[in-house]
Design a protein around this nucleic acid. Structure first.
Length: 476
RNA sequence: CGGGGCGUAGCGCAGCCUGGUAGCGCAUCUGCUUUGGGAGCAGAGGGUCGGUGGUUCAAAUCCACUCGCCCCGACCA
């Protein structure tokens, strides 16, 4: 039997692209670097949105929307920010048939346009904190793109908050980091490391950047989310001031944070296999696919009735789909739902009906479990929970097995080349060592753990004394 | 912008080295048989071989140019 998706262990990029296109999550568009998100891919995004949105609202945030176009001069107000983003900006120079007086930048991120508004909205300490999130698209003209991981245009959410004190801003940044971590681990079933970025890796214009780092199956790290403490860099540039209770004037302390459609790429890379994508139950657009099997007309009548009953029972609490097509065989359907990542399949045929059961098959390992029709909802629900747990656990083992200590530089160079993965390594803190490691091994400092990494040691690169270790990896 | 690879039927590919007028799988259509892991058999339809120019009696094949795509780098809060 010809398989649609072939093993690509020797070519992970190709496998990744094939899986996405064949599962119909996304397509290349006529414009290079831009991606068409098809209904399946968008459904995953909607699940991500739904969940994160609820978490943001539960912590007091509100959604709002700001313009796609940003006057070019806004970008220039914060020196570091423009340095980081100017090279990748798309710029509109004409409108209404005329050349514009001032070019408009298509937002690569919205700090500037949003803080220009905050300057008007914020007057008093009573106006703070401002806790706003925006669901939007942004455009960054990267030299090289990859479906979901780095596209010219992508969808994301960007939170922008303003606080009265530095402590409040720092608390917010860490609160969001924890929201991202728990979402990615609990819903996406992807274990992660969290921490702080080094100076060279932080956001253009931030005081400090915190991040979530995950490990893909080919041993490369992927940044899955970021949360920035902007300090007063932007509030000074945009003059966002408030009057304190004491009557003084002060600049606000700000944060910004975001996750993007890149998360979908993480999902594909972390859980996919040669049978297609593989979604964890809590995030899967379709959690259960029911595939009926019949030969005779009489069987068809009985079995479709049983399917209808199953749907009535499961539909109210689960995202379930009955595949009653007659033009394709059951075997076809099995494969199709697997390619599309449905975590649990329920088969029902004459043999099952006799035993008053349905056959449940897990997408992740094809393990079969008969479930009694009498306790269908409870059984299916517990199977889905089990799959969710097992997927996360499998990811944890993988992350554990691929996180190593690096003490000797030569050994580290050899190991990262052969095995990839994360490395715990002491770093003296100098930008020079960081750069040399990058040049010599392509590995970067993915994050500096927030705790648990205090330990006396020697820098991996220069052997100077070091008080803490960091995570190194090659990254997407 | 460098390095590598690929453009041949709707999709995936072979043929090219060594020129001789285009083939395979999937899909499609017809008929019969088929449903617990992508059905089987028999038959049918479908392609100015990315484009332009050159060499030749003859070009998918050789040469030059050109366009497009993919991968690896450079780049990338």
């Amino acid at each position: 039997m010809p398989k649609t998706i072939t093993p690509r262990s020797e070519d992970y990029s190709r496998w990744y692209t094939d899986v996405i296109i064949q599962s119909q999550m996304a397509d290349y568009s006529p414009v290079k670097g831009c991606m068409v998100i098809r209904p399946l891919g968008y459904a995953v995004w909607e699940e991500i949105q739904k969940d994160l949105d609820a978490r943001f609202k539960a912590t007091g945030h509100q959604n709002a929307y700001f313009p796609l176009f940003i006057p070019e001069s806004f970008l220039h107000r914060e020196a570091e920010h423009v340095k980081g983003f100017a090279p990748e900006c798309a710029v509109v120079t004409h409108g209404g048939g005329k050349e514009l007086e001032e070019p408009l930048v298509v937002r690569p991120t919205s700090e500037t346009i949003i803080y220009a508004m905050y300057a008007k909205w914020i007057r008093s300490y009573r106006d703070l904190p401002v806790l706003i999130n925006q669901w939007a698209n942004v455009v960054r003209w990267e030299m090289r793109t990859r479906l979901f991981l780095r596209t010219t245009e992508f969808l994301w959410q960007e939170g922008h908050t303003a606080h009265a004190t530095e402590a409040d801003a720092e608390e917010e940044v860490l609160r969001i980091l924890e929201i991202y971590r728990s979402f990615i681990e609990e819903k996406m079933a992807i274990p992660v490391f969290t921490g702080r970025k080094s100076e060279s890796e932080k956001f253009a214009g931030a005081l400090r950047t915190y991040c979530i780092e995950a490990l893909m199956q080919d041993g490369k790290a992927l940044q899955a989310g970021t949360s920035h403490n902007l300090g007063q860099n932007f509030s000074k540039a945009f003059d966002v001031k408030f009057q304190t209770a004491e009557g003084d004037w002060a600049h606000v302390w700000q944060t910004s944070w975001g996750v993007s459609t890149r998360l979908i790429g993480a999902l594909v890379m972390a859980h996919g296999d040669d049978n297609g994508v593989n979604f964890p139950p809590r995030l899967a657009p379709v959690q259960v696919a029911i595939v009926p099997i019949w030969k005779t007309e009489e069987e068809k009548a009985r079995i479709s009735e049983a399917v209808r009953q199953a749907i009535d029972i499961l539909q109210p609490s689960l995202r379930v789909k009955a595949d009653l097509r007659e033009e394709v065989s059951p075997g076809w359907k099995f494969n199709e739902w697997e390619i599309k990542g449905v975590p649990l399949r329920l088969e029902i045929g004459p043999k099952d009906l006799e035993k008053d059961q349905m056959m449940a098959v897990r997408r992740m390992d094809r393990r079969k479990t008969p479930v009694p029709r009498g306790s269908l909802l409870a059984s299916v629900t517990s199977l889905l929970d089990e799959i969710q747990r097992d997927m996360l656990e499998r990811g944890r083992s993988f992350l554990r097995d691929n996180t190593r200590d690096a003490r000797d530089y030569a050994e580290f160079q050899k190991s990262i080349e052969e095995a990839g993965g994360f490395y715990r390594a002491h770093w003296c803190g100098s930008a020079q060592c960081e750069q040399q490691i990058k040049d010599e091994t392509k590995a970067t400092i993915r994050c500096i753990p927030l705790e648990g990494n205090q330990e006396e040691g020697k820098c991996l690169r220069c052997s100077a004394p070091s008080r803490e270790w960091v995570y190194l990896a090659r990254a997407y």
